[in-house]
Design a protein around this nucleic acid. Structure first.
Length: 731
DNA sequence: ATTAGCGCGATTTTT
DNA sequence: TCGCGCTAAT
């Protein structure tokens, strides 16, 4: 055996890596070497010949994580791992469905709908059913369909107890029928259809159950119920499931993730105790103490405490710096000046991040950074394959593969404009409806009329593309599609600056060039298809991997992103901004059960992103949705132990005041100078029962006044100055 | 076919 | 406030 493989692992990592072939749950804290354990275990299984490349399955959530594992693994073992079942849940299900498309009752060329595609299908469906968007919001239906699929439920499994639910169920049924007819599969369907094939087809199930004797799962806390059922079914009673996750970092309940799967796994697979990875190689001591103390406020945890490695004992590092600014503008200024300070101390700009709870908060930061000429990069824009010009191009390619895709016909039949207006399209839809056929077949029928020469031109175009797709190389096919469709020409000649669109279309060709068909070639399903498979593979890849979020400039830049987007990343310095009641924890979250605890986990994730230095900041007033909001600082600030904190507010006072002069007229323009029975909007007050609060709004009531006071965790109260005993607090 | 204007809603997001 | 999606007008 290659002994170097296990070198440098600590005791708990070693125990996890060399765990016998039995079910295990590894509780892996932030920065504890989770990915290393996962990849080393696979390498170890291969190296000790306990498993072959063929008998291992490794599942992740994101493409990024899958790629990371694949590349680390290939540098650790000699084995050819190209054919290994290592990928995302959806990627593996896709692979499975391509292989077993007949058993899944799908066309060999089935297309994958991303969430945007799904939304348009739903809108189209509601229109065809004559359901007004006011009576049933497309979003509501989309959520209904997806959450039911993720629970493993078909429309036929559901019972209606009221009118609204009945309508939802009927629409769900109709949606599935439509997808089936057009050969479309949404994300949840990839999972559900795979699950059903395994469940109902004993031969296939047995085949895979016997094939995989090791199933490794990353980020297990993020699995939804269907994914869990799928894993369990695939494991059968012979495979060793090795699940790695962290219940404290479960921040995706809102999209169906069920942390409870960790407990369920332990019960179902008879796991006595989870293995724990608690040694944190990332952050200094004070940061770990803060994280541990905060998360201890959550109930029902599996239980885990991050600690420094032996070698770093006592390295507490700098305390966390707390700053409460008067306004969001001043908070942004604070971030700017501290960033510059850290740069002087030698920290690279791209090694620092500014995190916030919601994207709307980035604007002020952006303005301040721009004004100070600090380069920054914001994560959160459109992704490559979500751009409209790319979507148009892909629609042509989809039609080349599968013309009965009505969705794509509607998308590009008049894009670029070729004189096929809404009326003509309605006529085509009417014919399709009468003949119970796809739009494509309706078109075939209609073009026999000489009057429909514009439609004929479109049909000819698609047929031409179909022929090209079978004969040409992938990149040539795409070039031909851009060319023949006139899409590229359209953007070139169209007034206005469409250079970015043109660039993106060219980038699509490059993407096809880079897209490694060779990787796909090792897959079973390729053999079952005709000459179209490179294009089918490319299109599927485009849906499953929508590409990086907006890149920004290439130079070193300060990283701005939501806390969710920061999960899995680490930085030397982290600014955690907007720590205000109502924002973080968000008002919405407080309405949902378990919401506060999820927010706290989010806070935990945020804290553990920082290696050396962590800044926590809040603003007393913030411009949100065009209104000034006054809020208390976040309860999460109070949950941190005093001895790891350093308060900066007073120490910054001088600077604060000079800046205040600039901001004053802007912020206090409206009514801030008006007094309400001696009180002022924005003022901090203390109430004997409700504690600290901020005056949000006020109304005169005779000689007294009614004050709307935000007591943070204690809620918003309307109190009369006549009765309430309020003490003004000066900060 | 394009464009201006209006009303509305507004966490977090991967596949 | 801002950005969207839809309608009405050219």
């Amino acid at each position: 055996m290659d002994t170097s493989l296990l070198n440098g692992l600590n005791a708990e990592q070693l125990a996890a890596v060399t765990w016998p072939p039995a079910a295990a749950l590894v509780l892996a804290g932030a920065g504890s070497g989770k990915t290393r354990v996962l990849t080393t275990r696979i390498a170890w299984l291969l190296d000790t010949e306990q498993a072959s490349v063929h008998s291992i399955m490794a599942v992740t959530f994101t493409n990024k994580a899958a790629k990371e594992m694949r590349s680390r693994l290939s540098s650790m073992v000699e084995n050819a791992i190209a054919a290994m079942w290592l990928g995302t849940f959806h990627g593996l299900c896709h692979r499975f469905l391509r292989t077993h498309y007949q058993d899944a009752r799908l066309p060999s060329t089935f297309q994958i709908l991303d969430s945007g595609d799904q939304a348009s299908v739903i809108k189209r469906l509601l229109k065809s059913l004559n359901i007004a968007e006011e009576s049933l919001a497309p979003k509501t239906l989309q959520y209904f369909i997806n959450s039911n699929k993720e629970a493993g439920l078909r429309a036929s499994d559901l019972n209606a107890h009221d009118k609204t639910t009945r309508q939802l169920i009927e629409c769900y049924q109709a949606y599935d029928a439509l997808c089936q007819q057009e050969g479309m599969v949404d994300f949840a369907e990839l999972m559900l259809r795979s699950y059903e094939v395994l469940l109902h087809n004993a031969a296939i199930r047995t085949h895979y159950q016997q094939r995989f004797n090791h199933i490794l799962v990353d980020e297990f806390q993020d699995t939804n119920n269907l994914q869990y059922k799928w894993l369990k079914l695939l494991a059968g009673d012979s495979a060793a499931v090795f699940a790695v996750g962290d219940d404290d970092q479960s921040i995706y309940a809102f999209r169906g993730a069920n942390v409870g799967n960790m407990q369920t796994l332990m019960q179902d697979f008879g796991i006595r105790e989870p293995l724990k990875l608690e040694v944190n190689y990332r952050s200094v001591g004070h940061i770990l103490t803060a994280a541990n103390t905060l998360i201890a406020n959550n109930s029902g945890r599996l239980g885990k405490n991050l600690r420094l490695p032996e070698s770093k004992q006592g390295e507490q590092g700098q305390k966390l710096r707390l700053y409460v600014a008067d306004s969001d503008f001043l908070e942004a200024d604070f971030v700017v000046s501290e960033t510059k300070e850290r740069m002087k101390e030698g920290v690279a700009l791209d090694n620092m991040a500014v995190l916030y709870r919601s994207n709307a908060q980035s604007r002020v930061l952006e303005q301040a950074l721009f004004a100070a000429s600090v380069p920054y990069k914001i994560y959160g824009g459109l992704r490559f394959y979500e751009r409209q010009e790319i979507k148009h191009a892909l629609a042509y390619l989809r039609l080349a593969v599968q013309p009965q895709d009505d969705q794509s016909v509607l998308r590009v039949i008049n894009m670029p404009p070729r004189g096929i207006g809404a009326r003509t399209i309605e006529a085509v839809q009417a014919v399709a409806h009468d003949r119970q056929s796809s739009l494509w077949e309706a078109l075939q029928f209609l073009i026999t009329e000489p009057a429909n020469r514009k439609l004929k031109a479109f049909v000819d175009l698609i047929e031409q593309l179909q022929a090209q797709a079978k004969g040409l190389e992938l990149t040539e096919t795409i070039t031909a599609a851009l060319d023949l469709s006139g899409l590229l020409e359209y953007y070139k000649t169209q007034k206005g600056d469409h250079q970015d669109r043109i660039d993106n279309l060219q980038e699509l060709v490059s993407a096809a060039m880079v897209f490694n068909s060779a990787d796909v070639q090792t897959e079973e399903w390729v053999k079952t298809d005709d000459g179209l498979w490179p294009l089918v593979a490319f299109l599927s890849n485009a849906s499953l991997e929508a590409g990086e979020r907006q890149a920004g400039e290439g130079e070193a830049a300060l990283q701005l992103m939501t806390i969710h987007a920061a999960k899995g990343l680490e930085f030397d310095t982290v600014f955690l901004t907007g720590l205000e009641e109502g924002l973080f924890p968000s008002e919405y979250s407080l309405q949902e059960r378990g919401g506060l605890e999820e927010e706290r986990r989010l806070m935990y994730v945020a804290i553990t992103r920082a290696r050396e230095r962590l800044y926590l900041s809040a603003a007393q007033q913030r411009l949100l949705h065009g209104r000034t909001n006054y809020s208390m600082s976040s309860r999460f600030m109070d949950e941190l132990p005093d001895d790891v904190l350093q308060f900066l507010s007073s120490h910054r006072k001088k600077r604060q005041e000079t800046l205040k002069i600039r901001q004053e007229p802007f912020i206090h323009a409206k009514r801030a100078k008006e007094t309400f029975d001696g009180f002022v909007i924005g003022q901090n007050v203390r109430h004997e029962k409700f504690g600290m609060g901020v005056i949000m709004d006020a109304k005169h009531k005779g000689e007294h006044a009614t004050l709307s006071i935000n007591f943070g965790a204690n809620g918003l109260k309307n109190l009369s100055t006549q009765f309430a005993i309020l003490e003004v607090v000066h900060r």
